[in-house]
Amino acid sequence: MSDQDLIIRDLHVAPAAKPDHEILKGIDLAVGRGEVHAIMGPNGSGKTTLAYALMGHPAYVIKSGKVLWKGHDLLKLSADKRARLGMFLAFQYPMAIPGLSVASFLRSAINARRSGLNPDPAVDPTDAFKGGIPMGEFRKLVREKMTLLKMDESIASRYVNEGFSGGEKKRLEMLQMAVLEPEMAILDETDSGLDIDALRIVAEGVNAMLNPNMGVLVITHYQRLLNYITPDTVHVLAAGRIVASGGKDLALRLEDEGYAPILAEAGLEGEVGDEAPDGATPNEAAAPAMEAAH
């Protein structure tokens, strides 16, 4: 393990609105540069919560645990700083920003990403005329990546995710990833909502982006995606914990058998919570797990 790996240690996370109600109950995971890890797991098991916690969503609180990356205590940094360090999250449900064009959004994001942790005060990432990427270079970069993802250029003048179809939103997430060149990418169900051809195009696009410098965490329900993007490791997240890890065959096995046998092996049939988290009554602790396991 190097300090360049993403290292998650015993991470406990709860919603800020219900801080005694842990969703993640101790996650341990390490993703090295150049590695692809897949996370699978039943609905409501905490996959998106993990992605949000890693990105720094203010609606979640870290109850305990640590996340280290690139020599930083990641949990101490705001979301924008994590992004400028090279962390990227492709959202399961990308947000619409009415009135903000895709082009200005991408330009602002590229400028922010490139400014790193010590931004030049003369550059305003949100102002096209105050430094940052030159217009010509920007156009060239976006065109190139749109071609890679077989996207129509007309999307550049549309407003971010406004009126986009499910598949278009996912593709725009991938376009962002392509231009931002992250060092750690979390893809939260990027495959959901894509048609068969789009899935292939996006997966090939992601494959083209893979490089020895970037770690990838792919959250998915379907083994199909993993036919294109071959994971080094597959993890099963259930009831807020990683209950199994293995090679690519684990995904195949899940596809075949569903989650029940693996959850059973992990002792997670209908009831969990052998150790209630601090401050929570056993009932509270068990509630989300019950939901997840059924």
Partner: peptide, 10 residues
């Protein structure tokens, strides 16, 4: 948050 996750400050 969506915009911050792309590197923009609050």
């Amino acid at each position: 948050f969506y915009l911050m996750s792309r590197g923009l400050t609050e």
